[in-house]
Design a protein around this nucleic acid. Structure first.
Ligand SMILES: [Mn+2]
Ligand SMILES: [Mn+2]
Ligand SMILES: [Zn+2]
Ligand SMILES: [Zn+2]
Lengths: 138, 138
DNA sequence: TCATTAATGCACTTCCATTGCATTTGTTTT
DNA sequence: AAAACAAATGCAATGGAAGTGCATTAATGA
């Protein structure tokens, strides 16, 4: 069981207080977060720092970006064993039209998609919208 | 064979010179266009008019919006028989990483997507990225 | 023709992503 | 430990795109 410090160092991310806090925040959240979500959680720090921190996390492959169609970029921790850097994100994302939360459905892989002759598929973004388990009411 | 005027009227869209021009522009293009694309094609008219025209087309169900992940909204004509108003768009979209164009693959329907228990899927956005037929080089 | 309604054009706002630069903090090297 | 270096942070500003308010113009219908 690695500490967060060890994890960050293993990815060549220098450990700072802010980065530890942001990482912990992402762990606690089980949903994808926006930059503003992080901003509101840490009123002390500056948006730019948060922005660059999350970008660093993304480049180093511990966070992935999610475009759920709301127009606001969201981020979530990669699951262990995920290698976004190399191959692209394979799981689907679910956006709830009620509570407005977006979750990674990491257990639900994206099926093989056929494209016409001459087209070469490199990666796929699949977003399902509807009602999440908390909002579907049963 | 309906004229464009008849088509617009049948959808309760008042016929104006600008609307005819924009409609024709969309027909000629075989790819999804951004608002700026339209803006550049008609330097005479105002962005707001173009914006509201395309929104009108969208509301009336002759155009659908495409979020291809570039962060810029794109639009394309609905195919005949398409009823976005009622059901959601079922076909997939392809975004070329080389020429940056996005096309509707109307013949390629989105497969049935499984979601976990408790989740209710209402609609799906599926975007495939890679190289289009013009750019894949063969 | 006159009244009513819709379309258009201009100015402005808002929201989010992104960058430049000076400052602070942390790491290496001597 | 001190000096030199590099990276992280904070503030201010920019840029791009979506969207709105309102006055003006054009189309429709009584
Ligand atoms: Mn995810
Ligand atoms: Mn389409
Ligand atoms: Zn929900
Ligand atoms: Zn292409």
């Amino acid at each position: 069981m690695k500490t967060i410090e060890e994890l960050l160092e293993s990815k060549n991310i220098r450990v700072t207080a802010m980065r530890l806090l942001i990482y912990k925040f992402l762990v606690e959240k089980d949903v994808a977060v926006t930059l503003s979500d992080i901003e509101n959680a840490f009123e002390k720090s500056d948006r730019t720092t948060l922005y660059r921190t999350i970008k660093t996390f993304e480049e180093k492959g511990i966070v992935h970006q999610i475009d759920d169609g709301t127009g606001i970029t969201k981020y979530a921790l990669c699951e262990k064993g995920c290698n976004c850097e190399i191959e692209n994100d394979l799981h689907l994302h679910f956006h709830c039209n009620n509570c407005n939360e977006t979750v990674c459905l990491t257990a639900h892989k994206i099926p093989q998609i056929k494209v016409p002759d001459g087209f070469v598929a490199e990666n796929v973004n699949l977003v399902v919208k509807g009602f999440c388990d908390k909002c579907s009411g049963h």
